[in-house]
Design a protein around this nucleic acid. Sequence first.
DNA 1: TCAAATGTGGGTAATTATACCCACATTATT
DNA 2: AATAATGTGGGTATAATTACCCACATTTGA
Lengths: 82, 82
Amino acid sequence: MVILDDKNEFLRLFGERLGHFRTEQKLSFRELALNCNLDHSDIRKIEKGKRNIQLSTILELAKGLDIHPKELFDFEMNIEKE
Amino acid sequence: MVILDDKNEFLRLFGERLGHFRTEQKLSFRELALNCNLDHSDIRKIEKGKRNIQLSTILELAKGLDIHPKELFDFEMNIEKE
DNA sequence: TCAAATGTGGGTAATTATACCCACATTATT
DNA sequence: AATAATGTGGGTATAATTACCCACATTTGA
């Protein structure tokens, strides 16, 4: 059985979750970027699942959104053991 | 008001959480390392809060522990806005 | 209609994690 | 006591993120 690239799927789900909070708070990429000390285009890339960010960046995002970091991981996924 | 380095505190709490699950499952650093495709000494460094790991590494750890990644972030912390 | 804001995505130097070593002290286990 | 397992931590080349650019298409709204 072929298992779709776990990593990319994980990044995609994380990005989706980030986008959920950003749009919920009606923030533009640039507005959130100001709160996070990140570049707006980088946040966009994270939301698209194209960035494998670090713990410190997760913290920046959570702070910018004023949420607990764990909220960003609150999505469904099946942990496959290969 | 001086705010203690948010980032290091966050890494420390994450590492603590990782250690909680590892010891709960009675795994040595080396045993967990085998499940995660990581080096045992690197896991040790993560638990000590000395590593700013990436999303993909978080996924590896969660898979190795057979838990959802969000479990690793289930700890108390105050999100400070500087 | 026109300007401002936003979304989109490509590119780069510098920084940093990764993926490995290795060695040795400490703690079980027999 | 001797051996095995584990904890501990330092080091390094490579690969990747970060922290920024820039440009332009699209959307918003005055």
